[in-house]
Design a protein around this nucleic acid. Sequence first.
DNA 1: TCTGGGGTCCTAGGACCC
DNA 2: TCTGGGGTCCTAGGACCC
Length: 418
Amino acid sequence: MIALVDCNAFFCSCELIFAPEYKNKPVVVLSNNDGCALARTDEAKALGIKMAQPYFEFKHFEKTHGLKTFSSNFALYINISDRVMNLLEKMSPDIAVYSVDEAFLDLKGMPNVEKFAYEVKDKILNHIGIPVGVGIGPTKVLAKAANFLAKTSKKAKGVVNLMSRKHQDVALERIEILEIWGIGRATAAKLKAMGIKTAKDLRDYSNEKLLQKIFGKTILQIKNELMGIQCFPFHKAEAAKKEIMCSRTFAKSVYDIEVLKESVATYVTDAAEKMRSQGSLCSEISVFARSNPHNELEQGSLYESERLRNPTANTLKLIKHALALTEKGYQLGHEYKKVGVKLGQFSQGTDYQVDFLSPQDTPEEHELMAVLDHINYYEGDQTIKSAACGTTDNAWRMNRNFKSPRYTTSWNELKKFN
DNA sequence: TCTGGGGTCCTAGGACCC
DNA sequence: TCTGGGGTCCTAGGACCC
């Protein structure tokens, strides 16, 4: 028996904790650069605002329908997510966090699951202020389907239990195939052409060989889960990431290679930090940049990749490679709207930041020195092992004789101590 | 004229998830 | 004017091995 707890319009709900005056109004949280919609309340959905829809297409609702928009604040959402998950952990014998706003609960041996589901829902709302829906089923796919109904059906009151075959029959007939977890647009279109329109159609479809041939093996697992046969284990092995990417869209297109390089260096720094935190070294680094795909005159993209002879997690080494790749792929006059970095081909290990450029007597250097001294003074002499400042040509590193394994290379990280 | 058989590993690309 | 940022898994096909 599995429950899926899913926060409603999660990013919006987080913002509404601090701006309750917008409750029951259309609210949207926007992506980076206020580009498009990331989360919508039911009232915003009712206006026809779609997931990932560009902001400029629905901005007019602010004036006509009292739409409220927020720029995204991921630090806040992660903090609230942690609180929700901690609460769930305390209430449930076993939990598998699936994403920032959902978690599966193992309800094995639970006497009254629906009562429990309502308790969970009420507690998260009352203690944290986040509304959730709870779906219960014998498999993850059915729990997901139950959760879908819990959120969309008016009379469900936020909890749907699909443990019995009878309820499954009724419910799956009402769920379009596209709504099933693991079925996307492409697959749904093909399935519909075959006459498989609802979740029930798929569950009861008899020609498994044909399904496997057309769609591969995943669809059979989904079909089995719809039948109540578990194919997706409760705990997916908590594996280290196999690749780590960092990328952003620019607010305005970029033509200048220096700007591009600054960004690339920043994203390498971020990605390398993530990589070190899982104890990996990479032996492949890629840099990519794209022009705006929505422009009619889309220009060429930049994609350069390199295999490294010696695996490394050294930020400065990686920056050097990344900047060389950027120069290699850069084309004068091309517009670049999005740029990013990917680290891959991981192996286990750590290495230390050994090569560095000579420090220069810059204002940043003095500022960093002051920050380090400050940290030293308040946190103790061994807080910072090493630190880097600057991003491209002026990148330099300080190596002070601190013994703690904690170290950081990010200027913004350092400033947080202040 | 005739041109093995069985396997592994890697990569690119598609589809999907939030 | 203005269009997100991450990830995973699967498959097909090519390179390569003996």
